[in-house]
């Protein structure tokens, strides 16, 4: 294949990855920003979303589009509920102490993974896409559903931005993020904000998973990579900056694809990994973070 179409394909693939990564990472970014903790179980919430989508696809009769729509609503709600429960039962009692939270969320990771292994099994299972469409370009074919993923992720992110920038919920979250004490003084129920943010973060991961699972299959160990990539994206973007997270997701998603067109695949991964390190070495606050 000529280089032009090759690059085009890499960029299109990169955009799909970036869209899903942006969703997942924005969830982690919110939790990081407001609660100031690293949620190691974030990837498992992603995995749960995908696994739950498989169960929905088995239980909901009718066309795949219907099951998909149900999954898109039900799975994030379920995962958000679980996250809120974990927040109330564990994280709150730890007073969101960063180090204790790491251990607690690692414990949560183990529990969720085992639950998936026991109840769902070790196999990778496919979930049918809501529609089958194939795009034939002059040089290669591409999945029409992937275009939909990019669009849907964009829509959810736009909704998230509206929620944070324009609604009272967003105002309360930002107030809590900036100054917890003052927020309490103004009558904000900080506990509820924390539980809500933690749940929202998990729900975003679950939405991302429901969108990607028709392409990727649900598997009980699928949470590892989204966690790592999200974490990288959040830090590269600049802590607490949702805009930074989005830009970083786009950069990392697309550059990963483009670099891989020039080098041997694994070598490209090594170079991309070192590039991330170097970006941070020379810009420790991230792309959009305020200098400490």
């Amino acid at each position: 294949m000529d280089f032009g179409p090759f690059l085009l394909l890499a960029v299109m693939e990169g955009l799909v990855g970036a869209a899903v990564l942006a969703l997942t990472a924005s969830g982690l970014s919110l939790v990081f920003g407001v609660l100031r903790v690293v949620n190691v179980a974030h990837g498992e919430f992603f995995m749960l979303g995908a696994v739950a989508a498989w169960f929905v696809s088995q239980w909901v009769p009718g066309p795949p589009a219907l099951a998909f729509a149900v999954a898109l609503v039900a799975c994030p709600l379920l995962v958000a509920g679980l996250a809120a429960l974990a927040d109330r039962l564990v994280l709150k009692r730890l007073a969101y102490e960063p180090e204790a939270t790491i251990i607690a969320t690692i414990g949560l990771l183990y529990i969720l993974q085992q639950a998936a292994l026991t109840l769902y099994g070790p196999e990778a299972r496919p979930v049918p896409p809501p529609f089958e469409a194939r795009l034939q370009l002059p040089w290669f074919g591409w999945s029409g559903y992937k275009l939909f993923v990019i669009g849907a992720a964009g829509a959810v992110l736009a909704g998230l931005w509206l929620l944070l920038a324009r609604s009272r919920i967003g105002l309360v979250m930002r107030a809590t993020q900036i100054d917890r004490e003052t927020a309490t003084a103004f009558g904000i129920d900080v506990d509820r904000v924390y539980a809500g943010t933690f749940a929202l973060g998990a729900a975003l991961a679950a939405i991302a998973a429901v969108l990607i699972v028709p392409i990727q299959q649900a598997h009980y160990l699928m949470g590892g990579d989204p966690l790592l990539l999200s974490f990288i994206v959040v830090v590269i973007g600049g802590l607490g900056s949702l805009r930074g997270t989005l830009v970083a997701a786009l950069l990392i998603g697309v550059s990963d694809g483009v670099i891989s067109t020039f080098f041997e695949p694994t070598l490209a991964k090594i170079l991309a990994t070192l590039l991330v390190a170097l970006v941070l070495v020379f810009r420790p606050q991230g792309l959009f973070g305020a200098r400490a």
Partner: peptide, 11 residues
């Protein structure tokens, strides 16, 4: 289901 036990004990 050993991971379950390990996770619970860690928490």
């Amino acid at each position: 289901a050993s991971q379950f036990v390990v996770g619970a004990v860690l928490i």
